[in-house]
Design a protein around this nucleic acid. Sequence first.
DNA 1: ATGGTCGATCGTCGA
Length: 255
Amino acid sequence: MKIASWNVNSLKVRLPHLQQWLAEAQPDIVALQETKLTDDKFPVDEIAAMGYRAVYSGQKTYNGVAILAKDEPRDVVTDIPGLDDPQRRILAATVGDIRVIDLYVVNGKALGDEKYDYKLHWLSMVRDFVAAEIARHPRLVVLGDFNICRDDRDVYDAVAWGEDIFCSPPEREALQALLDAGLHDSFRLFNDEAGHFSWWDYRQAAFRRNMGLRIDLILISDALKSAATSSIIDKAPRRWEQPSDHAPVALELTL
DNA sequence: ATGGTCGATCGTCGA
């Protein structure tokens, strides 16, 4: 069983990369972020031709999330209970006996910006939703683009970055609150090293210089932790022509 | 040098 996440930065542009990666990696479940497509434009047929069912929650120009799976996703949720939000950033579905919550966390722009306040509020609402979901679904995976670096190992120049956006204490506390709901950062079950990133800016040849951040995470409940055998960042698609600025991340389980 | 690069959209914003 393989579960993956990828911020594709426009599914329209990146569909050929997604198709190539699905063919090579063969994940059972993959969560996508930044599809930037309204639901009527979602490439259902092309995805079906790859052997995947899809559920999606999109909007024009911005945001947009989707879950692809070889088995039919069911019990789909597209909104955080109690949060009236037009931005399409969350998608929950059950595949087999695994509950999947796909997140495209608010970027936040800068400390003090109104988008930063929205980010923290959005995360607090997500935490409450995750706490309710984990009570109902012991096998829970919460994955996506978190737009938070959990600790300094996840930043290419932590001294220079300091406590700026993605690394501020309130953001890190919000991520820790999610983990405290009963989740584990699957990558860190297998790798303690600094310098493993999932996103690199398009500018300044950042990828070639490995000037990146680890912001794409796969968080898993206790029941899945005991079955996890690997959790990796697949940098290969970042080297392809016209890539997403994010690499896919993938978890393997013996289930 | 207050920039740089993408994507959506078509001047400018978001990341």
